[in-house]
């Protein structure tokens, strides 16, 4: 319950930050109306695109039976595990490679070689190595979320202003303190961006991993619904991912605003 309240708070915070109120609801409203108009008029067959009301019915049924929560919870848990792993490794390695030139020289080549390989291409190996259930999926998610986090953290360390380095020398700031008080705070906005992009990648990867194997999770639910031609269930699953993903992003964004209070961001001209 406490978590729900916090999430609601984060959402309200993000709304207040934008300050546009009802204007945010115009485009979704128009799209919804358009969707309803197109489907109600019988222009599109329900198997291709069910009406919003059918989707709502499916949602109520799936929420009532606990089906939606079961699958969503399974995916959510995997995302959390994989993302946590990626966050620790991505921040750690990004910092490490940014700070120690020797570490960068010896490992950057391998990392850059692995980066272009789509995480899902690892699935056959991952299943062999970590089993078909949880292990392989968490591995794929961690891999997918790792690179955006790692790349952003490395860039964040790299963009440390050279004048700060010189200033630190003149003021005789010891290396450790310099890293903790100048490099890390300066990289924080980049770290937060990396985490937010990484989280989005984690959701993409969880669905992809679940499409291929397993009996639980939103990805499995989508394949299953598609096989049974239950398009309304497919849409419910997709929207559920969107809503949960957006909510998690809001939490991270609120966290970012708390940590990086010293920075004013551009909100559009």
């Amino acid at each position: 319950m406490e978590l729900v309240l916090k999430l609601a708070g984060a959402y309200r915070h993000s709304l207040a930050a934008g300050g546009w109120g009802w204007k945010r609801l115009v485009l979704p409203g128009v799209l919804l109306a358009l969707w309803q108009a197109v489907t109600a008029g019988g222009l599109v067959r329900p198997i291709l695109l069910p009406s919003p009301l059918q989707v709502l019915d499916a949602f109520v049924a799936m929420a009532g039976s606990g089906e939606l929560v079961t699958h969503l919870a399974a995916s959510f848990a995997r995302v959390l595990e994989g993302f946590a792993l990626a966050a620790v490794l991505g921040v750690g390695l990004g910092m490490g490679l940014g700070i120690f030139p020797l570490l960068f020289a010896t490992t950057a080549g391998i990392i850059q070689l692995i980066r272009p390989i789509p995480p899902i291409a690892w699935l056959p190996l991952a299943i062999l190595w970590f089993g078909i259930e949880e292990g392989s999926k968490v591995f794929i998610i961690a891999l997918g979320a790792f690179f955006p986090i790692f790349t952003n953290v490395l860039d964040g360390v790299r963009q440390t202003d050279h004048k700060f380095v010189e200033l630190a020398k003149v003021l005789e700031v010891p290396r450790g303190r310099f890293l903790a008080q100048v490099v890390v705070p300066g990289a924080l906005p980049f770290i937060m961006t990396g985490l937010r992009v990484g989280l989005a990648f984690a959701w993409m990867c969880v669905v992809a991993a679940e499409l291929s194997a397993g009996m639980k999770g939103v990805g499995y639910m989508l394949t299953d619904a598609r096989a049974l031609a239950q398009t309304d269930k497919v849409i419910v699953g997709m929207l559920a991912i969107g809503v949960v993903g957006k909510t998690m992003d809001c939490v991270l964004h609120a966290l970012e605003k708390r940590i990086v209070r010293w920075k004013t961001s551009f909100t559009g001209a």
Binding site: K163, L167, E172, G186, W262
Partner: peptide, 20 residues
Amino acid sequence: AGPDYTRGLVFQDPMLFPWK
């Protein structure tokens, strides 16, 4: 021999640490 605090430095840009 190298930089130290006895020769203070001020740039054109104040270069204050934004997070402090």
